[in-house]
Protein backbone atom coordinates (compact mmCIF):
# COMPACT_ATOMS: atom_id res chain seq x y z
CA UNK A 1 0.00 0.00 0.00
CA UNK A 2 2.71 2.34 1.03
CA UNK A 3 4.77 1.58 -2.07
CA UNK A 4 1.76 2.23 -4.25
CA UNK A 5 1.33 5.64 -2.68
CA UNK A 6 4.97 6.45 -3.12
CA UNK A 7 4.93 5.39 -6.75
CA UNK A 8 1.83 7.50 -7.23
CA UNK A 9 3.63 10.50 -5.81
CA UNK A 10 6.63 9.99 -8.05
CA UNK A 11 4.45 9.58 -11.10
CA UNK A 12 2.61 12.81 -10.43
CA UNK A 13 5.92 14.57 -10.03
CA UNK A 14 7.04 13.27 -13.38
CA UNK A 15 3.76 14.20 -14.99
CA UNK A 16 3.94 17.65 -13.45
CA UNK A 17 7.48 18.15 -14.68
CA UNK A 18 6.90 17.06 -18.25
CA UNK A 19 5.08 20.05 -19.86
CA UNK A 20 7.57 22.50 -18.40
CA UNK A 21 10.47 20.43 -19.63
CA UNK A 22 9.53 20.59 -23.29
CA UNK A 23 10.44 24.14 -24.31
CA UNK A 24 13.73 23.92 -22.47
CA UNK A 25 14.61 20.71 -24.32
CA UNK A 26 13.83 22.49 -27.61
CA UNK A 27 16.15 25.31 -26.60
CA UNK A 28 18.74 22.74 -25.72
CA UNK A 29 18.33 21.26 -29.18
CA UNK A 30 18.75 24.62 -30.92
CA UNK A 31 21.80 25.49 -28.88
CA UNK A 32 23.05 21.96 -29.59
CA UNK A 33 22.89 22.65 -33.34
CA UNK A 34 24.80 25.93 -32.88
CA UNK A 35 27.41 24.25 -30.75
CA UNK A 36 27.62 21.40 -33.24
CA UNK A 37 28.29 23.86 -36.06
CA UNK A 38 31.06 25.44 -33.99
CA UNK A 39 32.70 22.09 -33.22
CA UNK A 40 32.47 20.92 -36.83
CA UNK A 41 34.07 24.14 -38.02
CA UNK A 42 36.89 24.02 -35.51
CA UNK A 43 37.85 20.36 -35.38
CA UNK A 44 38.62 19.58 -39.02
CA UNK A 45 35.54 17.79 -40.37
CA UNK A 46 35.53 20.01 -43.49
CA UNK A 47 39.20 19.27 -44.15
CA UNK A 48 38.34 15.75 -45.15
CA UNK A 49 34.58 15.52 -45.63
CA UNK A 50 34.16 18.56 -47.92
CA UNK A 51 35.82 18.10 -51.33
CA UNK A 52 38.60 20.62 -51.99
CA UNK A 53 38.84 22.74 -55.12
CA UNK A 54 41.37 25.16 -56.51
CA UNK A 55 39.97 28.47 -55.28
CA UNK A 56 41.11 32.01 -56.22
CA UNK A 57 43.42 32.03 -53.20
CA UNK A 58 44.58 28.43 -53.61
CA UNK A 59 43.10 25.08 -52.58
CA UNK A 60 40.10 25.29 -50.22
CA UNK A 61 37.09 23.21 -49.22
CA UNK A 62 34.23 23.73 -51.70
CA UNK A 63 31.56 24.92 -49.29
CA UNK A 64 28.85 24.55 -51.95
CA UNK A 65 29.41 20.81 -51.45
CA UNK A 66 29.89 20.97 -47.69
CA UNK A 67 30.32 17.60 -45.96
CA UNK A 68 29.15 15.47 -48.90
CA UNK A 69 32.27 13.26 -48.66
CA UNK A 70 34.17 11.84 -51.64
CA UNK A 71 32.27 12.92 -54.77
CA UNK A 72 30.55 9.95 -56.42
CA UNK A 73 31.48 11.37 -59.86
CA UNK A 74 35.20 11.04 -59.06
CA UNK A 75 34.83 7.26 -58.89
CA UNK A 76 37.34 4.79 -57.46
CA UNK A 77 40.95 5.53 -58.38
CA UNK A 78 43.73 2.90 -58.52
CA UNK A 79 45.71 2.58 -55.28
CA UNK A 80 48.78 4.83 -55.10
CA UNK A 81 52.14 3.19 -55.73
CA UNK A 82 54.62 4.91 -53.48
CA UNK A 83 58.37 4.79 -53.21
CA UNK A 84 60.85 6.28 -50.78
CA UNK A 85 59.76 7.02 -47.24
CA UNK A 86 56.11 7.75 -48.15
CA UNK A 87 53.30 5.73 -46.65
CA UNK A 88 50.07 7.31 -47.91
CA UNK A 89 48.68 9.50 -50.66
CA UNK A 90 45.61 11.70 -51.00
CA UNK A 91 43.46 12.85 -53.91
CA UNK A 92 43.33 16.58 -54.78
CA UNK A 93 39.83 16.71 -53.26
CA UNK A 94 41.26 15.48 -49.92
CA UNK A 95 38.48 12.87 -49.91
CA UNK A 96 40.18 9.69 -51.22
CA UNK A 97 43.12 8.23 -49.32
CA UNK A 98 45.45 5.42 -50.29
CA UNK A 99 47.72 3.69 -47.77
CA UNK A 100 48.52 0.36 -46.12
CA UNK A 101 44.81 0.04 -45.21
CA UNK A 102 43.77 0.11 -48.88
CA UNK A 103 41.71 3.01 -50.22
CA UNK A 104 39.29 4.92 -48.01
CA UNK A 105 36.75 7.54 -49.03
CA UNK A 106 35.37 10.13 -46.66
CA UNK A 107 31.73 9.61 -45.77
CA UNK A 108 28.73 11.72 -46.76
CA UNK A 109 27.80 13.41 -43.47
CA UNK A 110 24.62 15.10 -44.76
CA UNK A 111 21.32 13.52 -43.69
CA UNK A 112 20.49 11.95 -47.07
CA UNK A 113 18.59 8.76 -46.13
CA UNK A 114 20.27 6.50 -48.68
CA UNK A 115 23.77 7.86 -49.12
CA UNK A 116 24.37 9.91 -45.97
CA UNK A 117 23.57 9.76 -42.27
CA UNK A 118 19.78 10.10 -42.79
CA UNK A 119 18.98 6.77 -41.17
CA UNK A 120 21.57 7.05 -38.41
CA UNK A 121 20.57 7.44 -34.79
CA UNK A 122 22.52 9.53 -32.32
CA UNK A 123 23.52 6.30 -30.59
CA UNK A 124 24.94 4.89 -33.82
CA UNK A 125 26.92 8.09 -34.37
CA UNK A 126 28.26 8.08 -30.82
CA UNK A 127 29.16 4.38 -31.03
CA UNK A 128 30.88 4.86 -34.40
CA UNK A 129 33.13 7.62 -33.05
CA UNK A 130 33.74 5.96 -29.68
CA UNK A 131 34.29 2.41 -30.94
CA UNK A 132 35.94 3.45 -34.21
CA UNK A 133 33.66 1.03 -36.03
CA UNK A 134 31.50 1.47 -39.14
CA UNK A 135 27.92 2.15 -38.04
CA UNK A 136 29.07 1.71 -34.46
CA UNK A 137 29.49 -2.05 -34.57
CA UNK A 138 30.89 -3.02 -37.97
CA UNK A 139 34.32 -3.05 -39.65
CA UNK A 140 37.04 -0.76 -38.27
CA UNK A 141 36.71 2.84 -39.50
CA UNK A 142 39.73 3.40 -41.71
CA UNK A 143 42.42 6.08 -41.59
CA UNK A 144 42.76 8.94 -41.71
CA UNK A 145 39.47 9.47 -39.85
CA UNK A 146 40.91 10.62 -36.49
CA UNK A 147 38.82 8.41 -34.21
CA UNK A 148 41.59 8.27 -31.60
CA UNK A 149 41.14 12.03 -31.19
CA UNK A 150 37.39 12.29 -31.57
CA UNK A 151 36.59 9.48 -29.13
CA UNK A 152 37.53 12.03 -26.46
CA UNK A 153 34.52 14.23 -27.29
CA UNK A 154 31.96 14.25 -24.48
CA UNK A 155 28.52 12.72 -25.04
CA UNK A 156 27.12 16.27 -25.20
CA UNK A 157 29.62 17.30 -27.87
CA UNK A 158 28.84 14.25 -29.96
CA UNK A 159 25.10 14.90 -29.57
CA UNK A 160 25.66 18.50 -30.69
CA UNK A 161 27.72 17.47 -33.72
CA UNK A 162 25.08 14.92 -34.68
CA UNK A 163 22.26 17.46 -34.25
CA UNK A 164 24.11 19.92 -36.48
CA UNK A 165 24.87 17.32 -39.19
CA UNK A 166 21.21 16.26 -39.17
CA UNK A 167 20.16 19.90 -39.65
CA UNK A 168 22.07 20.21 -42.95
CA UNK A 169 20.30 19.95 -46.30
CA UNK A 170 20.48 16.29 -47.43
CA UNK A 171 22.70 15.78 -50.49
CA UNK A 172 22.59 12.58 -52.54
CA UNK A 173 26.16 11.42 -53.03
CA UNK A 174 26.94 7.70 -52.99
CA UNK A 175 30.48 7.44 -51.64
CA UNK A 176 32.26 4.28 -52.89
CA UNK A 177 32.93 1.40 -50.51
CA UNK A 178 36.52 1.22 -49.26
CA UNK A 179 38.93 -1.06 -51.08
CA UNK A 180 40.92 -3.54 -48.97
CA UNK A 181 44.68 -3.85 -49.60
CA UNK A 182 45.52 -6.64 -52.08
CA UNK A 183 47.18 -8.91 -49.50
CA UNK A 184 44.10 -8.86 -47.22
CA UNK A 185 41.83 -9.77 -50.11
CA UNK A 186 44.25 -12.48 -51.23
CA UNK A 187 44.68 -14.20 -47.86
CA UNK A 188 40.99 -14.80 -47.32
CA UNK A 189 38.23 -15.07 -49.84
CA UNK A 190 37.34 -11.63 -51.21
Amino acid sequence: MRTTLLIGAVLSLVAGGAPGAEPSSKDAKASGVERGRYIVQTTGCHDCHTPWIDGPAGPEPDMTRALIGHPESDGVPEPASLSGPWIAAVSPTNTAWSGPWGISFTANLTPDPETGLGQWTERMFRDAIRNGRHKGRGRPILPPMPVMVYKNFTDDDLAAIFAYLQSLPPVRNQVPEPVAPPERVADGTP
Binding site: R133, R139, P140, E177, P178, A180, R184, V185, G188, T189
Partner: peptide
Amino acid sequence: MKSRNPNHQMPPLGTRVT
Protein backbone atom coordinates in the same frame (compact mmCIF):
# COMPACT_ATOMS: atom_id res chain seq x y z
CA MET B 1 30.38 -15.36 -43.67
CA LYS B 2 33.07 -16.75 -46.01
CA SER B 3 34.94 -13.51 -46.44
CA ARG B 4 37.79 -12.36 -44.27
CA ASN B 5 38.19 -9.17 -46.27
CA PRO B 6 38.08 -6.80 -43.29
CA ASN B 7 35.58 -4.56 -45.07
CA HIS B 8 33.09 -7.35 -45.75
CA GLN B 9 33.49 -10.12 -43.22
CA MET B 10 30.69 -11.11 -40.85
CA PRO B 11 31.01 -11.07 -37.96
CA PRO B 12 33.18 -7.97 -38.26
CA LEU B 13 35.31 -8.77 -35.23
CA GLY B 14 36.51 -11.67 -33.11
CA THR B 15 37.60 -13.90 -36.00
CA ARG B 16 40.41 -14.12 -38.55
CA VAL B 17 39.54 -17.54 -39.99
CA THR B 18 36.36 -18.62 -41.81
